[in-house]
Amino acid sequence: MIHAQVTDRDAAAARSPIEVAMYLRSRGWVTRERDAVCVQWTKDVDGEEYEVVQPIDSGLRDYSPRILDVLRTLGIVEQRSQLDVLRDISHVSMDIHSIRAFPADSPPGMIGLDDGVQAFESLRNVIVAAACSVSASQPQAVQPARKPAEVLRFLRDVRIGPSAEGSFIVTAHTLIPPRLSSDGGALEPSEPFERRVSLRVYDAVRAAYNAANEALDSVDGLDAFTTSVRRGVSANLCEALVGLGGEAGHPFELELSLAASRPLLQRKIAPVRFRHDHLPVLQAAAQELRERVAEEGVVVTGSVVRLHREGSGSGEISIAGTVDGDDRLRRVWMNLSADYYLQATRAHEQMVNVSVRGDLVRRGTRIFLRNPAGFRIVPDGDGD
């Protein structure tokens, strides 16, 4: 079998000495000698010893030819393409989440524009759901619209990776701090937040997959989703998974590749593949969770678009606006006391925005705000 070779010196020079060293160590190479400019690594394969000389200063004039030599030897030892080896060196410090979609009526590697945009947004939402689950002090079936600062900081460091061959594939890359001790790769309380999020993504997606299978086989199958909340399953996660299926609900597969710089030797991570018939179950589960569990303490801001009451007491209104932390325009219904209802009437007549805090729940196709409090007219220029 002929494997592709790397001849691009710029591509080789872009790999740092640290990346190369971490890759070699993760593949079982051991250091024999070290001097001021290079490290000699060796590895025994079926009784035959192989050797590579890794430069430790990327400023050397012959740095890229030396890296190309390392790639040639690794390609021989691993019996695979140098391009694949180079890619894995580039990703040695990254956990990679890959979504492989299988849209019908699309050439390999392609997808409809709308479904493609939705795939990227849904992958982000899957990661956000997992990060919120890790950050929360207790499991949440419905996550708050306003995300914790820790989650927002984490998201700024997640990167979208290049597409790959095959069906349509999107990837998200998370930089993981290397493991400096040789402790066998067991998960510890000291595992960094980034790694805990990666594992929560996988565990929550696997739990949602198992719950969907149970729901297809059982009359009370949706209960499997509520019992899986402790594993990171939430309405938000289920909705994000549905989004990955696109408008037509095509099958898709999620795969996790852990950074070689921080291995977990005790984990088996097989791809999770969702079928078309899983997606309606996930959608129903998301709606069920939102109807059972209120999203507490949210602020709705927008304009009063409907007023209704009988007599002079309390009444029902609806607001077209946004929920804090979410820019989507939504219509929210609520029952207000007499005093609040009068304020809402004035706001409607004056065509000014209002703000109100409460607990958000879904009932069928409508969104309701329970326990409304702090109803007020928002002055011009006040976005709070």
Rank of each mutant, 00 (worst) to 15 (best):
L175Y: 11
I319R: 10
R179Y: 05
A131C: 11
D62S: 09
R195S: 12
L244T: 01
N353L: 04
S303I: 13
A136R: 14
D384M: 11
L258H: 08
L256M: 14
L329H: 03
S133F: 13
G184W: 04
V201N: 13
E288S: 15
A270S: 13
A260Q: 10
V6W: 07
F102T: 02
A344N: 02
R230W: 00
S355P: 00
I127C: 01
G161A: 05
C132Y: 05
I367V: 10
V281G: 09
A36T: 13
L155H: 10
E296Q: 14
F252L: 02
G59K: 10
V272P: 04
Q5V: 12
D380Y: 12
A172D: 00
W29S: 06
W333F: 13
R273D: 06
I96L: 14
R262T: 02
E295Q: 15
I367W: 08
G374R: 08
S106A: 15
I317V: 15
G161H: 06
T174L: 12
I56P: 05
A240L: 01
V134K: 06
S318H: 04
R124S: 08
P189H: 11
R230C: 08
L279I: 05
G315C: 07
V205R: 01
G112M: 08
V142W: 04
L83H: 09
I56L: 08
V117K: 12
D57P: 03
D57C: 01
P280K: 12
R146L: 15
T301R: 15
V352I: 06
S190I: 11
Y202G: 00
V37P: 03
L329Y: 01
A320L: 13
W41T: 01
